[in-house]
Every structure is written in C-alpha cells, then in structure tokens.
C-alpha cells in the first residue's frame, strides 16, 4: 500500500472533512429511506421490500415531470412526493391490506413480488439505460461545482449542505409528527396494539395508509436526491434499499429514531470503510458493523424487544 505519511497534515484534515460530509450525505439519504421501512414494520410487522422501488419511482417521476412535462424542479419535487405517497397507499391497498390477517410470511413474499414487479415495470417504461437529471435545468444550487471553500482546501458543495439539512429537518418534523399530533398518537397506538386501537375508535386501516404515504414521500425525496449526483436506474432502489434496510435493523427495526441513527452510522461507515480501509468492499464493511451490533444487541441500537415500536 502507499504511505500517507508524505502528505501534509492540512490535506489530511481536508480529506477527513470531505469524507465526513460524504458520509453524512449518504447517511441522510439512508435515514430517509430507512424510516419508511421501520414505520411500516412498527405498525404491521411487515418488511416492505418494495419500499426501495418507491424510492426509485420517486426519482423517475421527478425526472419525467422535469424533462417531459417541463415542470420546474421546485414544483416537481413535492409533486413527485405526493405521487409516490399515492403509489405507496395503492400498494398497501392492493397488495397488503387483503393479507392483513394472513400469516406474516404471505405478506413478506407478496412484498418481494411487489418489489420485482415494480422494478420490471420501471424497466419496461424507462428501459435499463441509466438516466441523468440534466444539469442545465436544475437550480444552480444543485450544480456540484458550486461549493463553499472550507479551511484546508476542502470543498463543501451547496447540494450536500441542502441534502444534509433537508434530511435533518424532515427527520425532526417526522419525530414531532409522531409525538405531538393526533395522527402520531394514533400511529403509536396502532404500533402498540392494533386490535385495542381499533376498539378505541381508531380507524387502523386509515392510520396504516397514512404511514405508507409518509414513508413513501420520504423515500421519493431520497430518490430525487440520489438521482441528482448519481444515475436513475430501475435497480437503484435495490442497492440503496438493502443498505437502508440494514440501517433500519441496526437502529432497531420499528424504531423511527433508531432508523435515523442507523442510516447515519451505515452511511458514515460505508464512506470511511471505502476511504480509509479498502475501497473494493465499501458495503461489506458497513454490513460487518451491522452484524456486530446485532450480535451484541439483537434488537438493534434503540429497539425494544417488546412493546412500543413507533
């Protein structure tokens, strides 16, 4: 290997700062996806494998709105979130609601089937060719070259700042929604005991639909953020989805704060693993970390073995 001793101290620091930013951006995106997995699991104990595909559709829908219909980015962004929320609710209605009282395995297999179906649907509609958000129609804040210079020569692109802040704000908003609003209270009640919640007059199916809608909208925005610097492909949901699912498990599946924390940890671990240990095995390093945590704490970092899950 090559020694890094010859590199001046200051450059090492800049590299370290940039890697932290890379990790936080990736972690923020994983967190946004992971809450979608964990919220649904918290309420109906279903691992919704098709959530990664909602994330992928979020990116494609925004891309289509912008390139085909000429809608400005700042309108396409929320519109894509709304459309994906509807898609998520439809998915629950068509695929999962009929199986609500079936064995859990049936719903799980349905979720895997849903994931494959949506992935192939995307391939049919948009082909397997990777697509890009064209730079010239994006707001300049999203051009990767526009960056704040940090001391030591590190660059902090505005886009990265935007993604980190957006993830943070959405996470706080979600946390407040769950703990301070009536619908949040209903979600927590459903997570504790669906039958009892139903008896108390909570329309559980409506609460579940809202959970799907919120998770899908957050997934959609993550998909758009990924699309901005990477490619939009039919399989993008699979790769990011697996990592985000690992984040949800690491944080304790069913626990929203845990999913946020897990996302950040997996993202930073992946980047530091690739940047400082071995670049060929970036995801492997993140997964080893996850397995290590699960071995020590089987319910994840913040997960509880029973009871309150939302």
């Amino acid at each position: 290997m090559l020694s890094i001793a010859s590199i001046p101290e200051e450059e090492n620091m800049a590299q370290f700062l940039e890697q932290i930013i890379n990790g936080l951006v990736l972690g923020g995106i994983y967190a946004l996806i992971a809450v979608g997995y964990t919220m649904v699991y918290g309420i109906i104990q279903l691992i919704n494998f098709a959530h990664g595909e909602i994330f992928m559709f979020g990116a494609y829908i925004a891309l289509m709105l912008i390139t085909v219909f000429g809608i400005p980015f700042w309108i396409a962004l929320p519109l894509s979130m709304v459309l994906c929320a509807i898609l998520g609710v439809l998915m629950d209605l068509v695929a999962y609601r009929p199986l609500r009282n079936a064995p859990r395995l049936s719903a799980l297999i349905t979720a895997i089937g849903m994931s494959l179906a949506l992935q192939n649907l995307a391939r049919m509609i948009w082909s397997a060719r990777p697509r890009q958000f064209p730079a010239e129609i994006l707001p300049t804040v999203f051009h990767g070259q526009n960056a704040i210079s940090l001391p030591g020569g590190a660059a902090l692109p505005y886009r990265d700042v935007f993604i980190i802040l957006l993830a943070l704000i959405l996470m706080i908003a979600l946390n407040r929604l769950i703990h301070l609003t009536k619908i949040g209270k209903a979600m927590r009640a459903c997570a504790q005991n669906q039958v009892a919640a139903n008896l108390m007059g909570i329309k559980t199916n409506r609460v579940i639909a809202i959970t799907f809608a919120i998770g899908s909208a957050l997934g959609a925005i993550a998909g758009i953020m990924v699309g901005l610097s990477e490619s939009v492909t039919p399989t993008m949901g699979y790769y990011k989805g697996v990592a985000a699912f690992a984040a949800a498990v690491l944080g304790g599946i069913g626990n929203v704060t845990g999913a946020m924390l897990g996302g950040l940890i997996i993202g930073v671990a992946e980047v530091f693993g690739a940047g400082y240990i071995s670049s060929g095995y970036r995801l492997a390093i993140a997964y080893i970390l996850m397995i290590a945590v699960i071995v020590i704490r089987p319910s994840g970092l913040l997960g509880k073995s029973t009871g309150d899950r939302a």
């Binding site: 590299q15 940039e18 530091f272 940047g275 670049s279 060929g280 095995y281 995801l283």
Partner: peptide, 25 residues
Amino acid sequence: LVADEAYERDSTNFKAQLTSIKAKN
C-alpha cells in the same frame, strides 16, 4: 503511482474513493 483504488460493479457513488484520490493530487 500515487493512488490505487477499487470499486464494485454497479456502484453509483464514488465520492469516498474520489476524495481519497484527490488528497494524493
């Protein structure tokens, strides 16, 4: 030869490795 980094097929995010390479100038 100042840097020698690998990536896996199907990767879409190369920022970690690129940041390492950039530091070697």
